[in-house]
Nucleic acid binder design. Structure first.
Lengths: 254, 254
DNA sequence: ACCTGAACACCGTTCAAGT
DNA sequence: ACCTGAACACCGTTCAAGT
C-alpha cells in the first residue's frame, strides 16, 4: 500500500513516466516532482547521498518536511526517482555502425552519467527499476548498438546487463580508490598485515604482494596511475572478444 | 579518527585479521568480535539488513547497546565485518584442472555464499574491502583457478573482479525478481505504460515488449522460469570465450 | 487538496558514572 | 578497562488542524 497506484503500477514508475493522475480539486500545488527530485539531486551531488534527508530537501525548497509527502509517498520512492534521473544520457546520440565500437560508445555514455552522479550506484535497485524512463532509453540505445549482431533478444539484454554492471562496478571502484587513495599504514602495520596474509595460506596473493603490487611499502605509489581505466577497457575487450567468438560460431553453423 | 588503528590500518581490517591489540588490563571482556558479528548476521539473515541496529544486536546478546562500542567503533565498522564474514567458502575446495571449469566452479562458490547472505551485497564496499580475510581467500582461490592461463597478474585480477561482479549482480537480480515477481498491474495500468514506452521513441524496447517479453499482459507468467540462471551462464560463457580468444591470440604471437 | 506544527517512535552515538 | 543509564541530536513518518 502506498507504493503502488490504483493501476497496480509502482508509484515511482507512474510518476517518472508522468502517467500518475494529478488531483484536480483543491488549492494549486506549490511543488512538482521534478523540482523535488532536482533539489534532492543537488544535495546528493554536493554532500553525498547521506545528506539527502526529507528535511534537507524540503528546506532547500523552502517548504516544510511534511509537504513533500503530498508528492512522494516515502523517502524510498524519492530515492528511486533520483536513481533513474541520474542516468541521463545526451539528447542526441550518434552511435558508430560497427557494433564493437557502438557498444564501447554506449558503455562510455553510461560511465559518464555515473561519474556525474556516483551516489546513484548506492541506491538499491527496486523491482521496477528496469522500466523507469532513463533506464528504458538507455536499454533502447544499447539494443540499437547491437542491431548488427546475431543474437536473440534475451542474449542482447544479457549483454547489456553485463556491460552496464561492469561500468557501474568500475565507477564504484574508481571512486573508492579516489576517496582515500587506499590508506597509509605504518611499516609496522604493513608488517602485521603481511604476516597475516601468509604465503602458505594464500600463496598466489602473497606472491603478488611480494612482487610489490597492491600493498606497497610506499605510502602511496606516486607514479602509478591508480586509476581503473585499464580494468575498464580490459573488461570491455573481453566481452567483445567473447561476442566475436560467439558470432563466428553462429556463422559457421547457421 | 576511530576508523584506523595506531598502525594506520583500518580498524575493521585489523579486527578481521585478528591483529588488533587487545587491552590487557581491567575486567575481562564479556563479548568478542566474533559473537557480535555472528549475532548481527543472524539478524540480517532472518529480518534483513534493515533490522540490524545496534540495539537489536546488543539485545540478542543480552548486553546494553553501549557495550558494543567497546568492540566496534561504529555501526559502519560492524557492517564491514559482517560483509566479509558473509563471503564464506567451504574449508576445503578442490578446483578442476581445466581453467574454464575451475573458473565456473569458483563463480558457483561465490554465488552460493551470496545466496546464503544476500544482504551482504547491500553493504557499500569500503577502501580496505579487498584486503579482508575472506576476500583475500576468495581471490587466492580464483588465482589458483587461473594458474593454467597465460595472463599477467593485473589481467587475472581484472578477470576475477569481472566474474565476481557478474555473480553479485545476478544474485541481486535474482533476489529482486523473487521479492515480488515483478508487480501485477491492471490492464489499464499496463496500457498506460505501453503508451509511454512508445515505438517511435523506443523502437527496440517496444518491439521486445510487443513480442510478449518482459511486460506481459498476464499477471505473472506461471510457466516462465523467471530465474536468471540463463543470464548467469551466458555471462560466464561470454567471459570464458573472451579469455579463450585472448589466449589464442597470445599463443599465435608469443 | 494543500501545507503546517506538534508529536511519535525510532536511530547512532556521547558522556559521566559506577565496578 | 569494562559495562551501564541517561541524554542528545537526529530521522522518517503519522496525525489533527488550519486554509
Amino acid at each position: 500500500m502506498g507504493d503502488t497506484t490504483e493501476t497496480g503500477l509502482p508509484r515511482a514508475l507512474a510518476i517518472a513516466w508522468g502517467v500518475q493522475d494529478v488531483p484536480q480539486r483543491g488549492p494549486s500545488r506549490g511543488l512538482t516532482h521534478e523540482r523535488i527530485v532536482a533539489a534532492a539531486i543537488e544535495i546528493a551531488d554536493a554532500h553525498g547521498l547521506g545528506a539527502v534527508t526529507m528535511q534537507a530537501v524540503a528546506k532547500s525548497l523552502d517548504f516544510t518536511t511534511m509537504s513533500l509527502y503530498r508528492y512522494v509517498s516515502s523517502k524510498d520512492e524519492l530515492l528511486r526517482l533520483m536513481q533513474d534521473a541520474a542516468l541521463s544520457l545526451p539528447e542526441e546520440v550518434e552511435l558508430p555502425d560497427d557494433w564493437r565500437a557502438a557498444l564501447r560508445a554506449w558503455a562510455d555514455l553510461i560511465r559518464d552519467a555515473y561519474r556525474v552522479h556516483p551516489w546513484a550506484l548506492e541506491i538499491p535497485r527496486g523491482q521496477a527499476a528496469v522500466l523507469m524512463p532513463r533506464t528504458v532509453r538507455t536499454a533502447d540505445l544499447g539494443l540499437a548498438a547491437m542491431s548488427g549482431i546475431a543474437l536473440d533478444d534475451g542474449e542482447k539484454i544479457a549483454v547489456l546487463l553485463l556491460i552496464s554492471q561492469h561500468v557501474a562496478s568500475m565507477v564504484e571502484l574508481e571512486r573508492s580508490l579516489a576517496a582515500e587513495g587506499g590508506f597509509t599504514a605504518t611499516p609496522e602495520g604493513l608488517e602485521k598485515l603481511r604476516r597475516a596474509i601468509a604465503p602458505d595460506r594464500f600463496p598466489h596473493i602473497a606472491a603478488i604482494m611480494a612482487a610489490g603490487g597492491y600493498v606497497a611499502d610506499a605510502p602511496a605509489p606516486p607514479d602509478a596511475p591508480e586509476g581503473v581505466d585499464d580494468e575498464y577497457e580490459f573488461g570491455l575487450d573481453l566481452l567483445i572478444a567473447g561476442l566475436e567468438s560467439l558470432e563466428r560460431r553462429a556463422r559457421r553453423r547457421p
